[in-house]
Design a protein around this nucleic acid. Structure first.
Lengths: 348, 348
DNA sequence: GTGAAAGCGCTAACAG
DNA sequence: CTGTTAGCGCTTTCAC
């Protein structure tokens, strides 16, 4: 009803050409936006294409042109809202430039990261790697495919790879100082996934922060809520009054485990996260965490990819800044005088 | 180091053929797994391909074969962990059958749903629509493209579309009965996104549950945490002692808003969600919700898609069941005697 | 069981 | 500014 009869076969560029009274090449030029075509031809091609409901065959187009107009994005774990937040902007930016994005989830597997990366590269004109866990050799194996590769959220030493990273060391330090400023003297640090570069960075930041009379105890963790939840006994065993979790997800797990044991956050123990996932501000207590420049990073990533696609030299490094967001999951420890703690909290 | 020099150009099937001493057609047959090829030829082709690091050119392959070996998946909102959970299984199943999945997020926009669906269909051999918001005419416009289209989590009346849905009406009723059983007599129902079919279904389930002395008041809501948070004043205005939120995300928002006002959940007000996102069991209080058969639905979806791809007739309808998960966000209302409430809660 | 040949639908020189 | 001519790399009849 009112709907056109669907053609058994989709119209080809040649049919459009015939209908418009021009050659296939001209149709291609009009639709591809390339070189100059007379206004009249353009109009007729547009009209004919519209009438026939023509849409270019993507496979044919990429076979002929050598470009797919698609970019691959690989993330370690889409279940983490953080990664979604990170790529959301890229998605929109790419769409605006009429590029498609295909996103894949390596599920924290090193092997899959390689395989999926390689595979994405076969479908796409370029690849954006979010916080890749793989080692450098895999990274340049990917780069050696001859297509633009861009790394988000991890900086690479020697390889001339384009990278975009937030300065997490500074942010993590500020967060730690906030906790120390509240008066905590015995702090547990719940580590991230074993292979996470971000995890190493954050731990480096915390560890480097030598402060008299403050002890920071590392505890093996992971990247998921479950990892945080399971780490609670060990965390408690440290006798800490605050725990710095690798990210928001693990912080959530920690808080859940603590609550289950009747411990109050931040009354009994303070907990911090990292990432500021949407959930962080809605949980109870709202989570003290670090907000990264996700939007800017996404925008920068697309800009860099567009440049690379345009033939720009790789190796650009963009550095952005992140900052703590203090909410209600952190407070002075029970044993410390309020006045003192409050005073220290305000400083810095 | 130890890494092979990357070839400027990727090897073609003809080069593999030459190296193996066979024709391109034979290579194609071996790699495509089709028809019978002698063991010897097979071995030599495999070897040559391995040596040259050959990988088929996907665009050329789909141009020639007419198939892309890719399936499109469209979800209304990837920021909702529920959708990720729903498609995760599909992702794995597809991968196992060496199909690629490209997932797109329509961001709750009807227009984008159409455009993106159409676009996915141009890149893929089939399309899986998760809880599409679009109207039926768009749905069959998509189906009319001549490729398999499958709808997850929404059942369609007249169109002979393959669908897979969970019986949410029953689950929602059970959840509501649980709340009523606890003794609540004035219950607010926080509605879902305007165009959500699931939302309509759930509300239908609740509304149809006529119970003497129980009043259920609908309040406009949405699908995000923010939507839930913003609805709190209106929810409170109803004077309810329990709120049934459209989904977990909105429930989280409601609980956050309630806490901010010093109200305790479930002490002052009980709150339920829907979906059982991973977060639900880790929040405080752990959320009473409904767990859908996500895994089964995902598996069924892939099975159905594989059948469709194989030429099976569309129109299959698969129905699965969902069930409430009672946690700690629901309790008897303050004004009701505990014994009575407990008694009712156990019944049904 | 295997090869030769003919395109799939499009883009990109190259002439005009 | 526009048409003609070649393929892009692969699959797929069709003979042998």
């Amino acid at each position: 009803m009112g709907r056109e009869v669907s053609p058994a076969r989709r119209p080809t560029i040649r049919e459009v050409a015939k209908a418009a009274g021009v050659s296939a090449a001209t149709v291609s030029r009009v639709l591809g936006g390339s070189s100059a075509v007379s206004a009249e031809s353009t109009r007729r091609v547009r009209e004919a294409a519209g009438l026939l409901g023509y849409a270019p065959h993507v496979a044919a187009r990429s076979l002929a042109s050598g470009r797919t107009h698609v970019i691959g994005v690989l993330v370690p774990n889409l279940a983490n809202p953080y990664f979604y937040a990170l790529i959301k902007r890229v998605l929109h930016a790419a769409h605006k430039d009429s590029y498609g994005l295909i996103v894949a989830d390596s599920d924290e597997s090193l092997a899959d990261e390689r395989t999926m990366g390689l595979n994405l590269l076969r479908h796409a004109d370029g690849l954006i790697l979010c916080a890749p866990r793989c080692n450098v050799s895999t990274l340049d194996e990917l780069a050696d495919e001859g297509k633009p590769v861009l790394v988000l959220n991890r900086s690479i030493g020697r390889v001339p790879l384009t990278t975009i990273v937030a300065d997490n060391v500074t942010a993590m330090r500020e967060l730690t100082r906030h906790v120390i400023g509240l008066g905590h003297r015995r702090i547990a640090y719940l580590q991230g996934p074993p292979r996470s570069w971000q995890g190493k960075e954050r731990w480096r930041a915390v560890r480097g922060l030598r402060t008299p009379h403050v002890e920071i105890i590392p505890v093996p963790g992971g990247g998921t809520m479950d990892d945080g939840y399971r780490a609670v006994p060990e965390l408690l065993a440290t006798g800490c009054t605050a725990v710095l979790a690798h990210n928001d997800l693990t912080a959530v797990g920690v808080i859940a485990g603590l609550s289950e044991r009747g411990l109050d956050v931040p009354g009994d123990i303070s907990v911090t996260g990292y990432d500021d996932i949407p959930f962080a501000r809605f949980m109870s207590p709202p989570l003290t965490t670090v907000r990264g420049p996700n939007e800017e990073a996404g925008a920068a990533a697309w800009r860099a990819m567009a440049a690379l696609l345009d033939g720009a030299a790789p190796g650009t490094r963009t550095q952005l800044t992140a900052a703590p967001v203090i909410r209600d999951s952190t407070a002075p420890p029970k044993t410390v005088g309020r006045a003192d703690a409050a005073g220290m909290a305000e400083s810095g």
